[in-house]
């Protein structure tokens, strides 16, 4: 019994990782005032590109790096659309998700001629702890959470970012370059989402399949709200949501019923919904979130 439980806990850690990374990224973006619901799309693009790179170079680290960089680039695009072109941030995010789904499917077909999934690629080597495996990215995600918490609350750049999200007019009057800070934040946010996506294909599964992210980008958004925009709390939230994800996978393996697979798959989404509903009353988003900035 204990052994199974510990297995489940370790599995939760693996599922927690992308939810923490993407959430931290989105926290940085949202603290600066921009909302990016396209992180699901970024994760998908990153997962795909990381797989492609790893496939052709044989080097999983390089794949993860490219995935992260691509995420940053997509964050840049979203930033330009939101900040300079003053586009509707929600709609742009929706478009990005749809685009990602289509483009990665097209890519899957044109590179490997397969409509479902790519061949398996090299994975990131794991660290062994008590006969179980933990990914270095999982540990990194926790460290990243702590680092970003500290940066946002205790440093000058963190102050600037928060100022943009709370009162951009006041911040600008105080010499903060709103455009640059917000753009930088969306790039950082995109990079972390990219890292999360790359992790999913290279580290967690070992291949890319259509729709591999399966809504995890949105669960990460739920994690942002759950953690009240505090990077430290995303670890807790990520673990809770990751636990349900792991539970679904675990039950699937144990119960071995094709029919019930579908029912188990519902667990992460239903639990996310319930958790968010229960905890939401206490959260306070940045005051200027999602509004394009118009100079007076």
């Amino acid at each position: 019994m204990i052994k199974e439980f510990i297995d489940l806990l370790f599995l939760s850690l693996t599922y927690m990782t992308p939810l923490v990374l993407a959430a931290i990224g989105e926290i940085v973006t949202e603290k600066s005032g921009i909302v990016n619901i396209g992180i699901e799309g970024i994760m998908l693009f990153a997962a795909f590109s990381a797989t492609v790179v790893t496939f052709f170079t044989g080097n999983p680290f390089f794949g993860v790096l490219i995935g992260t960089v691509l995420g940053g680039l997509l964050g840049l695009v979203h930033g330009i659309i939101s900040i300079y072109l003053r586009g509707d941030q929600i709609i742009a995010g929706i478009g990005l998700n749809i685009l990602a789904y289509g483009a990665t499917a097209v890519g899957l077909i044109s590179i490997w001629g397969n409509f479902g999934s790519s061949p398996f690629v090299a994975k990131i080597p794991k660290i062994v702890v008590y006969n179980r495996y933990i990914s270095p990215l999982t540990i990194s995600s926790i460290i990243i959470a702590i680092v970003f918490w500290w940066v946002l609350s205790r440093t000058a750049i963190g102050l600037k970012i928060r100022a943009c999200g709370e009162s951009p007019h006041a911040a600008e009057a105080m010499g903060v370059n709103i455009w640059l800070v917000r753009l930088g934040s969306t790039i950082v946010g995109g990079s972390l989402s990219g890292l999360a996506g790359a992790y999913m294909s290279i580290d967690l599964v070992g291949q890319f399949s259509r729709g591999i992210t399966a809504g995890r980008g949105f669960i990460a958004l739920a994690n942002v709200v759950f953690s009240n925009w505090n990077p430290l709390l995303t670890i807790l939230g990520g673990f809770v949501f990751g636990f349900f994800d792991a539970l679904a996978a675990y039950l699937d393996i144990i119960v071995q019923s094709i029919a019930l697979t579908y029912i188990f798959k519902i667990i992460p989404y239903a639990s996310t919904l319930i958790v968010v509903t229960a905890f939401i009353g206490k959260s306070k988003p940045p005051a200027d979130l999602g509004k394009p900035y118009f100079k007076e």
Partner: peptide, 24 residues
């Protein structure tokens, strides 16, 4: 209409302003 960040403390607002003068 003041250009202060209401949810920041006075000191945080002053630090933010000083940042633009290079004071960290």
């Amino acid at each position: 209409h003041f250009s202060l960040i209401p949810s920041f403390t006075v000191l945080e607002n002053l630090v933010l302003t000083s940042l633009s003068m290079g004071e960290k």
